[in-house]
C-alpha cells in the first residue's frame, strides 16, 4: 500500500522534499552518537547526543567572515554546493524499505560522481580561501581523492559485473548499476561459490577502508589535519559557511554508511525473521520495523567504519595514504574483482 502510494508523483515529490530534512536530522543524530561513543571509547563522558544540533545552531548565529584575499563568490558558493550534493546523494539511496526518491533516474555511476563532488567543492573552497593552510589542505584533499577513487570505482565495477551476470528474466528491470535492484537482491545470493564470497569480502574490506577516507576522518583526515595545518580546508570558514560544511559532512557520513549497507547488507528484517507469522503484521508496523532495522545496520557500519577507526589510529601522511590506496587497496580491489570474474565465469 505504501509502495503504491509512493508511485504517485506528488507523494514522491513530497518524499523527496522530506527526505533531506530527515537526513539532516539523522546525520546530526549519528554524529552525536559518534561523538558520545568515541568519548566512551576514550574513557570520557562526552557531549550530550544533541550537541551537534547545538553546534549547528550556534554556527548559524555566528558572523560569516569572508577573508580579504579570497575569491568571495567561490568561497561562499562551495559550502552550498557541498551541501546540495550531499543531500542529492541521499535521494539515490533506497532508505530501508522505501525506494529511493530518484529511483531509476540515476545509478551507481551517478553516486560515484556525487561522492566525488563534495570533496571537490571543499577543495575549491579551500583554494578560494587564499590562506596557505587552506591551499595545502586543498592540495592534500585532491591527492587523497585521486587515490581512493580507483578502489572505489573498482568496487562499483565489480558490482556491475556481478549483477550483469544475473539473467535478465530473474529481475524485473535489467539494470546492473541500479541501486534499487542491488537492494532487492542481496549480493551474497548472486555469487555462486566460495570464491565469489571471498571476492566480495575483499571488496567489503576495501570499501570499509575507503569510507573514512571518503568522509575525511582519521586516519585519512589529512586535508583537515588540525595540528599540522590548523583544520586545513576549513581554516578560513566560519559562521554559516562552516555550518553548511558541517551539515554536509554529517549527511555524507550517514549516506556513505547507508551505501555500504545497501551494497553489502541489504537484507531486510523480514528475510531474516518470519515477521508475517505475527498477528500485528500490518503494513505501517512492518515499515517502521524495517526502517529501524535499516537505521540499526547503518549505525553498526558507522560505528565500525568511522567511530572505531577514527579513535584507534593516528593520522597518516598524505604520501603514505596515496601509496596505501594506490598500491595496497587498488591491488586488493582488483584481486577481489578477479575473484568475482572467476566466480561469474563459472570457473569454480
Amino acid at each position: 500500500m505504501i509502495l503504491e502510494m509512493l508511485q504517485d508523483p506528488l507523494v514522491r515529490v513530497a518524499f523527496a522534499v522530506l527526505l533531506p530534512i530527515i537526513a539532516i536530522f539523522l546525520g546530526l543524530f549519528y554524529k552525536g552518537l559518534d561523538r558520545k561513543l568515541s568519548a566512551r571509547l576514550t574513557s570520557r563522558i562526552g557531549p550530550p547526543i544533541r550537541q551537534p544540533f547545538r553546534d549547528v545552531r550556534k554556527l548559524f548565529l555566528k558572523e560569516n567572515i569572508v577573508p580579504e584575499n579570497s575569491i568571495p563568490w567561490m568561497f561562499n558558493a562551495m559550502p552550498l554546493v557541498a551541501m546540495a550534493t550531499s543531500l542529492t546523494l541521499l535521494l539515490y539511496i533506497p532508505f530501508g524499505p522505501f525506494p529511493a526518491p530518484l529511483e531509476g533516474r540515476g545509478d551507481l555511476i551517478v553516486l560515484l560522481y556525487l561522492l566525488a563532488m563534495q570533496p571537490l567543492a571543499m577543495a575549491l573552497g579551500g583554494f578560494a580561501s587564499g590562506s596557505p593552510y587552506a591551499s595545502v589542505g586543498a592540495q592534500r584533499e585532491m591527492v587523497l581523492m585521486m587515490s581512493y577513487e580507483v578502489p572505489l570505482a573498482t568496487i562499483i565495477v565489480g558490482f556491475a559485473y556481478l549483477y550483469a551476470s544475473v539473467p535478465a528474466a530473474a529481475s524485473a528491470v535489467w539494470a546492473p548499476f541500479s541501486l534499487g535492484m542491488i537492494a532487492q537482491t542481496p549480493v551474497w545470493a548472486v555469487v555462486s561459490g566460495p570464491v565469489g564470497i571471498i571476492g566480495l569480502l575483499i571488496l567489503l574490506g576495501v570499501l570499509l577502508v575507503v569510507t573514512p577516507a571518503e568522509l575525511v576522518k582519521i586516519p585519512f583526515d589529512i586535508a583537515e589535519a588540525e595540528t599540522e595545518i590548523a583544520e586545513g580546508l576549513l581554516a578560513e570558514y566560519s559562521g554559516r559557511n562552516l555550518a553548511m560544511f558541517y551539515l554536509s559532512d554529517a549527511v555524507r557520513s550517514f549516506a556513505m554508511c547507508a551505501i555500504v549497507v545497501v551494497l553489502f547488507f541489504p537484507h531486510t528484517l523480514s528475510s531474516l525473521v518470519p515477521l508475517t507469522a505475527y498477528p500485528w503484521n500490518t503494513e505501517p508496523v512492518l515499515f517502521t520495523l524495517e526502517t529501524l532495522w535499516f537505521l540499526l545496520k547503518v549505525f553498526i557500519v558507522y560505528f565500525f567504519a568511522v567511530t572505531l577507526v577514527r579513535t584507534s589510529f593516528a593520522r597518516i601522511k598524505v604520501d603514505q595514504a596515496a601509496k596505501f590506496f594506490w598500491l595496497h587497496m587498488t591491488l586488493a580491489a582488483l584481486f577481489g574483482l578477479l575473484l568475482i570474474y572467476l566466480d561469474v565465469g563459472g570457473w569454480f
Binding site: 568519548a39 566512551r40 571509547l41 574513557s43 570520557r44 563522558i45 584507534s312
Partner: peptide, 11 residues
C-alpha cells in the same frame, strides 16, 4: 579502547 568502553568514564 574497547575495554575502556565498558568501564565507567575516568573523567
Amino acid at each position: 579502547l574497547i575495554k575502556q568502553m565498558f568501564r565507567k568514564p575516568y573523567t
